[in-house]
């Protein structure tokens, strides 16, 4: 006897649905394998995994949260870019507009700011977790090095974003920060010049930091993350007791 088709059955059985989703509902092991393997976002994962790797108290989700905050930062950052103008004359004014007149502008800015702080903390703690569980040991040596580069990239992303509001906090924090960088032996003055594009922080600094912040460094971070995630799988998945 044929079961009567519900509306849901008709939708999920339609040729349009089947063209998008190649597998059935993931309540069988076969479909659970297919949903991971056939989805571009999920196929970052293997189909099956060691049981210990799903324990939250092992990773505290720190690496995942770092990545998640990167995504939040990308989305809120794009929205802020619609309104923000990286000009010495207009930057501060557009910040006030984002906070005062743009719908949800203040919320977007707050989420961007707090995620940025959170990402620095999460990436640093993630490094601690990986270290204390000995997860850098062979065959994961190279991925540890990639991780250190990601830490540096995170610092630079946060640092370049710090100047953009163009308020007293931003201006003087970057002044102090670039003086620290400028104190490098031998190449110090050149480093400072390269960073600021001038003898003091001004329009050329703002456009440099803006470009680094919204496109160059995110691309570097995305590139390094691609390698980082790929190598987790190629080096045998997340570490665990032998």
């Amino acid at each position: 006897m044929r079961r009567e088709q519900s509306l849901a059955d008709r939708i999920t059985g339609s040729s349009v649905w089947r063209s998008v989703v190649r597998h059935g509902y993931p309540d069988t092991q076969r479909n659970q394998a297919l949903i991971i393997a056939s989805n571009v976002f999920l196929h970052i994962h293997p189909v099956k995994i060691k049981r210990y790797a799903t324990k939250v108290t092992y990773t505290f989700c720190l690496g995942g949260l770092s990545f998640f905050m990167f995504l939040v930062l990308t989305m809120t950052g794009v929205l802020l870019m619609f309104y923000y103008i990286p000009s010495e004359d207009q930057a501060y004014q557009t910040m006030q507009e984002i906070e005062g007149t743009v719908t949800f502008g203040q919320l977007m800015r707050n989420m961007h700011r707090w995620s940025a702080q959170g990402m620095v903390i999460a990436v640093f703690l993630h490094m601690g977790r990986v270290f204390y569980t000995g997860s850098y040991k062979p065959p994961r040596e190279f991925n540890w090095v990639i991780g250190v580069l990601l830490l540096v990239t995170t610092f630079l992303l946060s640092f370049t974003g710090y100047l953009l509001p163009w308020d007293q906090l931003a201006f003087w924090a970057i002044t102090v920060g670039s003086e620290i960088g400028g104190a490098a032996p031998i190449v110090g003055p050149q480093v400072r010049q390269l960073l600021l594009g001038d003898f003091q922080i001004g329009q050329s600094t703002l456009i440099r930091f803006y470009t680094l912040h919204v496109i160059f460094l995110p691309l570097i971070a995305a590139f390094l993350m691609a390698v980082h995630f790929w190598r987790i799988r190629k080096d045998g998945g997340i570490s665990g007791p032998l």
Partner: peptide, 20 residues
């Protein structure tokens, strides 16, 4: 087969995906 699970293994969907 890809769906053969060893003793100490679980399926990523749902076991890991739900945690994430």
């Amino acid at each position: 087969r890809p769906t053969d699970l060893a003793e100490d293994e679980v399926m990523v969907w749902p076991s890991l995906v739900v945690v994430e």
